[in-house]
């Protein structure tokens, strides 16, 4: 069981983490807007996360923390 946390207010919604996730668990939340005015990336199914940290590796703003 892994845990991924996003510092959502720093997300710029670039979607590189969404593309990097091998399980396809991340998505850009089109119905949300963060403090910067972007639609942030969110985890859709934490149960299936394998904690590979690919999302965090590709995040240009270093807002993702992965625990396992």
């Amino acid at each position: 069981m892994a845990k991924v946390t996003f510092r959502t207010d720093l997300c710029k919604g670039c979607g590189l983490c969404v593309n990097a996730c091998p399980k396809g668990l991340l998505a850009i939340a089109a119905d949300q807007i963060n403090a910067k005015g972007y639609s942030p990336a969110v985890m859709t199914d934490m149960e299936k996360c394998i904690g590979c940290a690919f999302c965090a590796t590709m995040c240009p703003d270093c807002i993702i923390t992965v625990e396992k």
Binding site: C14, G51, V66
Partner: peptide, 21 residues
């Protein structure tokens, strides 16, 4: 749970001004 990935200490905790992506 152990931390697998977090922001390195040598990178300041400020928002980067770069464009998305």
């Amino acid at each position: 749970m152990a931390v697998v990935f977090e922001k390195p200490k040598s990178l300041a905790d400020v928002p980067l001004h770069y464009c998305p992506g």
